[in-house]
Design a protein around this nucleic acid. Sequence first.
RNA 1: GUGGAUGUAGUUCAAUGGUAGAGCCCUGGAUUGUGGUUCCAGUUGUUGCGGGUUCGAGUCCCGUCAUCCACCCCA
Length: 417
Amino acid sequence: MIQKPPGIDDIFPDKIPLWNLITGSARQSFRLMNYREIIIPVMEYTDVFARGIGNETDIVSKEMFTFEDRGGRNLTLRPEGTASVVRAYAENGEYNRLALCKLFYIGPMFRAERPQKGRLRQFNQFGAELFGDGNPYYDYEVISMMEDITDRLGIRDYTLIINSIGCPACRPAYIADLKKYFSSKRDLLCDDCKRRLEKNPLRILDCKKESCSALKSGSPPITGYICGECGDHHSKLKAHLDSGGTKYTEDPLLVRGLDYYTRTTFEFVTEKLGGQNAFAAGGRYDNLVEQFGGRSTPAVGFAAGIERIMLMLEGVVTVDDGVDVYLVHVGGEALEKAVSAAKLIRKNGYSADLDPNERSFKAQFKRADREKAKACIVIGQDEISSNNFTVKRLDTGEQVSISESALIETIEKMVAR
RNA sequence: GUGGAUGUAGUUCAAUGGUAGAGCCCUGGAUUGUGGUUCCAGUUGUUGCGGGUUCGAGUCCCGUCAUCCACCCCA
């Protein structure tokens, strides 16, 4: 038996209603906020991610699907969306000129991690990016957009965590002191953190080892370092969140695994996903467009994991999408009548299905039931001779005999919920 | 990448080292034109794969692949 590679899943029809509910809610929310869709490539030059996300990050250093194509180009399957969108935006002069540019995307991402609950090697994200304005209102806008999507989906059991990690003007002093602090405790750190101490001391704050966690409380809080402008930005964001009625928790220890963030970072976390507690996250990245060779452009955005949201909604949301009409026929002549009736029904926008084999009424009704049909049309000897249709509503059992001219009207009544 | 657990019918699970089974699902039927409930009957297996031990392996051992969980990391 040929199998799929590890961590790569098929999504079968029974999951599609939930999938559509989630992506549909996201699209709806994006539309209301005036974001427009962009479809970005599934692979890029490796450099897009290496420079965008940061060479020292785990994503780039050990989680990418990277390969050489036949022309000797070094390509990578995208591990996230932001770097690609920024590359597309910076590369396209038309869009790069715009004073303000709001984009969203939906699609698969790839990371070569060990699969487990809520963590796949190919997974899907939707996300939004805004370019061209550093106003903290827009940090609020993308956060509230994700809040709106969870709201539409009926997700209540989550926490929004926010933080400011400063900017290139103020962060270096913080990192320097952080390094100083943890260096004095070096012997107590785990091996990973000893390495982080050299390469990216901020990441130590993300370590979940108890021994390292215990040291965090004594570390200098970032709040004491961020400059006036960053502080002002952060309080304005909080003011917007407050007036929008958005609940949040401040966590000065929230640092994210991608190097490009400046000022605002945020995460939507839940207890429901086991080890993988974040289902959406994002932040501001004011220097990334410039890094990609575009003109200096402030930007902010977020991404959400569709499969993780599906996990949260499983069992809570049930959607059934059966066929509208199932045609039951007996006798060769009846089949032809069923075929033309089915065509008429579909022409009027209702789905219709039938079994072309000569099977008993009972068997066909059973099939109709399994297909979750809302109504059946019965065509047998009686209907042939009277030139009528028998239409039966499956939930109530109500049944009527009508002429072809009344067929669509009758179906409309029975199929409407 | 590290650690632990688990792989038997489509599915959920049984089977002291001694002939591979059950529920659900699926197919058909219950006096031949009506589904969902009920009753009856029936189909379904290279026991993940490859070695080894044994008279004999689903069961014990080794390897391998995959899944799940945790670490790690992140959406």
